[in-house]
């Protein structure tokens, strides 16, 4: 069986940085290695060197590479209790201070969390007060998110999460059935814009009341997590909220003390210092 060594990955990372200006050097090594192994197997390369060779001579392959290297596993209403707290505590808190709500889904993947949020806002009757930006590094996955479809095999999991979240209806209210998939009601995306953005490059493009970046930074090492937290901090209004995955932590980041913990179980933080 083919085993990938760190030296192989270094060569690949260097080429991608030099030729395409994407920097994977601070990605978490174990998952990055698995992604590369997957690409090598999927495209039947003999080795990582062969992959490097393809990327050197075939720039059109790069977009596919990015799609495969990033992890696009997501579900609607993952951790239902998180969404309940968002609905019952966090969003009312924001709206009690001002009449508008700006949201950033950083690393939105195929859009399941965006759809969940729009359903939540619709059911609260405050969707018209919100503006949402959803970003990802992978253009192909953004296009899929825009198409707003959910594959049939995931619908059961999504529905049971929605039930646990105790939504007002049943999830199928928001979908129409197609052959292989379910189509999400796109009218609910009228206040959402999708765009490409690389967290690693660290560009601030707007300010938000609420940022969701759940299970995205787990693919980064601590150095990069630390850098990205600066970006997220700068992109939040003072007293804005940051949500990360339930098993992620900020405590070792330089600017952790600029946040307070609002909910430790669901990892919801509030920015309290500029």
């Amino acid at each position: 069986m083919y085993d990938i060594e760190i030296a192989d990955l270094r060569k690949l990372i260097e080429l991608v940085k030099e030729k395409y200006d994407y920097d994977f050097k601070n990605y978490a090594m174990s998952s990055f290695k698995r992604r590369i192994k997957r690409i090598v197997e999927l495209y039947k390369f003999d080795s990582v060197d062969a992959l490097v060779e393809r990327l050197t001579h075939n720039p059109t392959f790069f977009d596919e590479f990015v799609s495969e290297v990033t992890v696009n596993v997501t579900e609607m209403f993952r951790d239902p209790n998180f969404w309940t707290i968002l609905r019952d505590e966090i969003i009312p808190n924001i709206l009690s201070n001002h009449n508008k709500l700006s949201i950033w889904h950083a690393g939105c993947s195929s859009g399941e969390e965006v759809f969940s949020m729009q359903i939540l806002l619709e059911e609260m009757g405050v969707r018209d007060k919100s503006h949402t930006i959803a970003t990802d590094i992978d253009s192909a996955i953004i296009n899929r998110a825009k198409e707003a479809t959910v594959s049939k095999k995931n619908i059961e999991l999504n529905s049971s999460n929605y039930e646990r979240y105790q939504g007002k209806y049943t999830l199928d209210k928001y979908f129409t059935e197609d052959k292989e998939k379910y189509n999400f009601n796109k009218q609910l995306l009228s206040n959402v814009s999708f765009r490409k953005h690389d967290l690693v490059k660290g560009q601030v493009f707007s300010k938000f009341d609420l940022i969701l970046c759940r299970n995205v930074m787990i693919y980064f090492n601590q150095t990069l997590q630390n850098d990205v937290l600066y970006l997220l901090h700068e992109s939040l209004f003072k007293y804005g909220f940051l949500c990360i995955g339930s098993k992620e932590s900020l405590i070792w980041c330089d600017i952790a003390n600029k946040f307070i913990v609002i909910n430790n179980e669901e990892k919801i933080y509030k920015k309290v210092k500029e």
Binding site: S30, S31, R34, V71, V73, I218, E248
Partner: peptide
Amino acid sequence: NSISLSTEG
């Protein structure tokens, strides 16, 4: 010497 978590498939 650290642990990482992931949501891969």
